[in-house]
Design a protein around this nucleic acid. Structure first.
Lengths: 204, 204
DNA sequence: CCGAGCCTGTAAAAATTTTGTAAAGTGTCA
DNA sequence: TGACACTTTACAAAATTTTTACAGGCTCGG
């Protein structure tokens, strides 16, 4: 279910391996069952926080389990949800917590461009530029992956997803349009750089 | 498909021979079908881990098969993917897992050179040097095989791959260019050394 | 120490690959 | 059906790779 929503879930079967994965793989958010083999969920939270792991945590508890909410939050959990719960509710809480803990920038600017995530608009030299959905998604992906060489395949997988199979030149076509719309001089790109033989690199 | 992407796939027809190949040939990564003749995929994972084989494992399961993800991961799998899946998705997961399990250094320096793998850039005396894909690949190969005499054939096979057949002088041409771009004095190489009658040796 | 014969350095030409980009083709939605 | 977005195609331009050619260098037997 999480995968369908474009999260990348990782699993751990017990508290100990959960602790290790949380530390080494640095996920954006943890879902912790209260009743775990080996180590209780509260104990896991406590140890993570003692280890300066700031990752937001949602605790899952079964109905009937005696839950001391105050203790839970004291131990470092950020939210909790009681089983059985629906997918929609879990998703909503995950999104809410991610939003709370990554106070997303409302907007980003680079060069003469300003991108407003809330309004989903883009301006260049003060004037609004109309971006199509694909162009906007690509731009957002670049913004989140600045200054890294990104292969066309990686871009396709991240922006288009696995269930669409455009050829890699599609990426080029969209980059061209981003350049035409957002570069001071599209023939001399300063932000959307090509990495010959690989793909592109975005420089804010 | 994997060959096209420059992997070197090996096959095993059942769990037993898979186990043996995993142990003796030490591949970088295993793709294990859940339903195998003779031994289930979970059992194979478990035995490998019990044998201290650390190789990362991706489990392939058919849709509809009852898959206990937690059990799977407990048995030692690192990721799983449900059939049918696309080539791109499998590749992405393979690459992600390889990346996770070989935590690559972000950058390396030697002499007055710094190579940034993330940005895929190279600087010499602080200034960015433009390397072509072949030059960059060759440099990376040298970095991973420092201080060893490397024959032109070995270099060709490793950097160019088996499906391209340039003559061995091609290597020389590229070494010349690396020297011109990255040596303090290209006519007196301190890093890209010639091993007469054999090939080259890279000294950081 | 000499020189033949093979090896390497290197610039430049030739061949090939990759990219930029407009335009044509395809699909979608109201 | 029309408008719009997305994808593919095609081809010129740019960039890179490979080959070539020749000048030196290295090695080793005499």
């Amino acid at each position: 279910m999480l995968e369908r929503e474009n999260f990348v879930p990782l699993f751990a079967a017990d508290g100990k391996s959960g602790f290790e994965k949380a530390v080494t793989l640095k996920p954006q958010l943890l879902l912790v069952d209260l009743r775990l083999p080996g180590m209780s969920g509260t104990e896991l939270c406590r140890q993570l926080r003692a280890d300066r792991v700031q990752t937001p945590i949602i605790v899952l508890s079964a109905i009937g389990e005696e839950v001391d909410k105050v203790l839970l939050l004291e131990m470092g959990a950020d939210d909790y949800i009681v089983k059985p719960f629906g997918a929609r509710e879990l998703l909503a809480r995950i999104r809410a917590l991610l939003r709370r803990s990554n106070p997303e920038t409302k907007s980003i600017r680079f060069g003469e461009v300003e991108v407003d995530f809330d309004r989903r608009t883009t301006t260049f030299r003060g004037a609004e530029v109309k971006l199509t959905p694909a162009e906007y998604n690509l731009l957002v992906f670049f913004l989140h992956n600045s200054d890294r060489a990104l292969s066309r395949d990686v871009i396709l997988n991240s922006v288009w997803g696995y269930d669409s199979y455009p050829n890699t030149r599609t990426v080029d076509a969209h980059v061209v349009r981003l350049r035409q719309k957002l570069e001071p001089d599209p023939s001399l790109p300063r932000h959307f750089l090509t990495v010959h033989g690989v793909g592109y690199r975005f420089l804010p």
